[in-house]
Every structure is written in C-alpha cells, then in structure tokens.
Amino acid sequence: MFRAKPEQSMTQQSSNETIIAQGVKVEGDFHSQGDVVIDGEVSGSIETTQALIIGESARIKADVIAKNAVVAGEVKGNIRASDRLELLATSVVEGDVETANLSIASGARVNGKITMGEVEKAE
C-alpha cells in the first residue's frame, strides 16, 4: 500500500546544455540558447544567452558573448559578458573585455582593454 514508487531517472540531461570537451574542435559561429561548457578548441565566434564556462584545457580563438562567463583557459578574442565575468588564476585573455561585474583572480593574465558598465545582452 505504501510501497515506494519506482525511482524515476532524474539524470536526464538538461536538453539545452552544450559541452565541448577535449578532443573536439568547433569551427564557425556557434550560437546557443543554453549553458555552454568548453574544454576543447573553438575558432570563430561563441554566443550564448546563458552561462559560459571555459575550462583550463580550452583553447579559444573567438569573440565570446554570454550572460555570465567563467574563464579558466586561453581566449584569443574579445569577451562580452552582460551580467558577470570571472577570470580564474589559470586564465589567459588576449582581447578586450566588456562586462557589468568583473572578478579577476591573482595569476590571471589580461592583455586588452577592460570596459565596465551596462553591457548589451546576447540575442
């Protein structure tokens, strides 16, 4: 009567999350409406209306537009984060940075212009 219901699989991945892991290369204009995690290589442009996480092993040669971004890897291109940008200690950014809120960890390298204030959101 009070038997537990069979466990439903709750591990079904969020249908809009994109993961580009090591061993994969993306070339071109990458657009997403969901969260994006990058540990591989990307060249071209990256745009998401949600969060973007660039891992330590990521190699990006692209302009980046996101709502929130956390960078731990290498980015050669401009970064525009409308809400918040976090540059971790291992990050290397060669390009201009534009964001409303910025956090830079000790050890992070930025070679470019930093602009802070109201930023246009990604479409």
Binding site: S9, T11, Q12, Q13, S15, I20, G23, V24, K25, V26, E27, G28, D29, F30, H31, G40, E41, G44
Partner: peptide, 28 residues
C-alpha cells in the same frame, strides 16, 4: 545550425546521437 559551424573530433572518437536513452528525454 545550417552549416554555420562544424564540429570535428581531434582524436579517436565514437559518435552517439540519442533520442530515447537512459539519460535523454524523448519528449523535448
């Protein structure tokens, strides 16, 4: 995305496209 970007594996890889699977929702 109509050829706007392309994805290539840089090392040995297997591709799996899922609709109905243990971790994939077939109603989305």
């Amino acid at each position: 995305n109509d050829g706007k970007y392309r994805v290539v594996p840089t090392s040995r890889a297997d591709l799996e496209i899922q609709n109905l699977a243990d971790v994939c929702n077939p109603c989305d």
